[in-house]
């Protein structure tokens, strides 16, 4: 099977965000990286497109995505002061959604910056 080669891929492991990485990937795994450092290479090889985990867990049990989303929305809606935390390993587009959700739920939003 031929490998999918991505030029100028961006590594999001650390704050350097190197955007000159070459990735060689099959359908499920990145099998080769060029120009990445040891941390970046481990990052790219550590995440695959395999289905290793259930799509969602509710109270520790496998659940459908729809159920998990409804349960999550219930918890956040019922809370007086929900916290939205993290944000450092997700895209800006997702961060924008998270801020909107925090506003809607009347919560607090914070990132790794405050640690």
């Amino acid at each position: 099977m031929s490998l999918n080669i991505v030029q100028h891929a961006t590594c999001t492991f650390c704050g350097c965000v190197c955007d000159d990485i070459e990735l060689h990937a099959d359908a499920e795994k990145i099998v080769k990286t060029k120009h990445a450092c040891s941390l970046g290479e481990a990052w790219f090889r550590n995440h695959t497109a395999e289905r290793l985990y259930p799509e969602a867990l509710v109270d520790g049990q496998p659940a459908t995505l729809d159920t998990a989303i409804d349960t999550a929305a219930d918890h956040l809606y019922k809370a007086h002061m929900p916290l939205v935390y993290g944000l450092s390993n997700i895209t800006c587009e997702a961060q924008r959604e998270a801020i909107s959700l925090a506003e809607l739920a009347g919560g607090v939003i914070d990132s790794h910056t405050s640690l």
Partner: peptide, 12 residues
């Protein structure tokens, strides 16, 4: 440190 921690500062 983290890949997009700067982004979270910017977007917020």
């Amino acid at each position: 440190g983290h890949g997009n921690v700067t982004g979270s500062d910017m977007v917020m």
